[in-house]
Design a binder for these strands. Structure first.
Lengths: 145, 145
DNA sequence: GGTGCATTGCTATGTGGCATAGCAGTAACC
DNA sequence: GGTTACTGCTATGCCACATAGCAATGCACC
C-alpha cells in the first residue's frame, strides 16, 4: 500500500474529493438532484433574486452549463424565474423549493459533520482552514509556467 | 462573497480539487498526457510488472476504463505489456517511459511544492495529514444512511 | 440620442472521467 | 473435472465541463 502518489497533496486532494462527492451523491439520490443542482438551490436560498449568470460565477459554472440546471430545477417546481430586466432573470425558490432546500441543508450539514467527525481529533479544527486555503492557493495559480 | 457553501468542507474540498486539477493539467499539457495517464505511469514506475487490474484497484479506476489509458500509453511508446499468465499482463515502462516518468515526477513535485508554499505558513504542515485523513474518512463511509 | 461594446440566456457540440452490463479466455479450488 | 472467480475487453450511457456562436438587451460615451 505504499502508494507513490500518496505523498502528492494534489493527488490525495483529488481522491478525497471524489470519495466525498460519492458519499454526498448517495445522500442526494433520494431527492433526485445532482450536487450541482443542490449548490444552486442553496445559493438562491441565500440570495433570492440572484441572476443566473451571477450564480454561475459564484459556483464557477459556465453560463452555458447553467441552462440545464436551472431548467431542471424549474421543471421540478423548486425554482421560479422572474424577469429582472430585458436580458436577465432573477431566481427565487418556490415554496416547495424552500422546503427542499432546508431539508437538503440539514442532510448535507449532517453528512459534513459526520465526515469531519471521522477525522483524528487533532486534525479536525484544521480541516476547513486547510481546504479553504488550498482552494485559494490553487485558484490564485501561476500565470507563468 | 459570503458564500453559504464556503462553510461546507465537502464543497470547499471539491472546489479546491478542481482548481488544483486544472493547474496540474496546464502543467501536463506539454506532455500530451492526461492526469489519469500520469498516475498510471507513476504507479508502474514504482511497481514494474504490476497488472492492469492491480493498478486499477490502486488508482480506483474501473477495469473497463483502464483499457484506453493503457492503450494510449502503449501507443505513445511509454509502456510495455508482457503476458504474465494467460489472462493478465504485466506493465513495464519503456526506456522512453522511464525518462518521461522521471521528468513528470519532477514537474509534478515542483507544482505541488509551489501549491503548498502558497498556503499560510501555519497551515502548511497540516495540509497533507488533513487531506490523507479526509480521503480515508470519506472512503470509510457510512454504509447506513 | 444614436452608436459601439459588453452582458445575458441560450443552442449546439465536443471531451474527459466514470459507471454498468456482458463476453471469452484463463486460473484456482474443491 | 466442474464450478467459481478473475482478467482484459467491447459497448454504452451519464455527468461535468469547455468553447463557439447567436439574438436580444442594456450601458457608456461622444
Amino acid at each position: 500500500m505504499s502508494d507513490p502518489l500518496a505523498s502528492l497533496p494534489g493527488y490525495v486532494l483529488r481522491r478525497a474529493s471524489s470519495a466525498a462527492l460519492a458519499g454526498l451523491n448517495r445522500r442526494l439520490a433520494p431527492y433526485g438532484l445532482r450536487h450541482a443542482d443542490v449548490s444552486l438551490l442553496l445559493i438562491v436560498r441565500d440570495r433570492p433574486g440572484i441572476t443566473q449568470s451571477e450564480a454561475g460565477r459564484m459556483l464557477d459554472i459556465q453560463r452555458a452549463n447553467m441552462v440545464p440546471i436551472v431548467a431542471r430545477l424549474e421543471a421540478k417546481g423548486l425554482l421560479d424565474r422572474r424577469r429582472a430586466d430585458g436580458r436577465s432573470q432573477g431566481l427565487y425558490l418556490s415554496e416547495d423549493g424552500e422546503g427542499q432546500a432546508a431539508a437538503l441543508r440539514r442532510d448535507i450539514d449532517a453528512y459534513e459533520t459526520a465526515l469531519i467527525a471521522r477525522l483524528p481529533e487533532a486534525l479536525r479544527e484544521h480541516a476547513l482552514p486547510v481546504l479553504t486555503a488550498l482552494w485559494q492557493a490553487a485558484d490564485a495559480e501561476p500565470e507563468q509556467g
